[in-house]
Design a protein around this nucleic acid. Sequence first.
DNA 1: ACCCAGGAATTGT
DNA 2: ACAATTCATGGG
Length: 226
Amino acid sequence: MFRLDDDARTIFGEISRDSLVRRIVRLYPGLRLMRQEPHQCIFSFVCASNTNIPMIRRMLHNLTRKFGRPVKVDGLEFFTFPSANDIDRADIDELRSCGLGYRVRAIKSAAHAIASGQLDFDVLKAASYEEAKKELLQIYGIGNKIADCILLFSLEKLDAFPMDVWIARALLENYSWLHQEEFGDKLTLHQYEELSNSARRYFGKYAGYAQQYLYYHMRQTAGKKW
DNA sequence: ACCCAGGAATTGT
DNA sequence: ACAATTCATGGG
């Protein structure tokens, strides 16, 4: 199992072989990957399709308030994140009232896959990137992008490289080893796999860390001059 | 009214 | 294989 204390030096040494990533790493010395509980990560990213971050946060807030368990911390009341069983048993209309829209079907199918044992997180953590991804892609509501995010943020696949238009722009602007594929406001399945696999080969076993630095820097500097 | 948002599944060619 | 369409929702 991966441990940050042991491997942080190795990881940054590895991804810092690239000059651009080396510069960005120095800009954001505290940036780290989280290791989220898989069911939280899955529900969060299933909610993330075709919407924006404020809306995603609102959906998750509504879900915890409606299906989580109340807990008091320093006299303040919070709600725990719902379990897969909670979502699996949840009433459809109550889920819809959280603002999930058409994503209700997706979150239901994911919850059932977990609750039924079809998805076993210990097995997925022990499996390779390719094997674990293949299992995730079976679930309705989990496509290429969401699968890679789940693998990187909660299943310890540090070589996963989630692709989106921001990362694609960063790669195409800075790396000539990509034979420049044009893309519009969306990435096709073919473009996704070409770009993600190329980046995985280039950055190596900690490609996901490089992805996070590149992505974060793109969002920080969006609209500004580098 | 219109466009967009860290997409994915389904249908059409 | 690949392109087009649909799927709810809220913010700007």
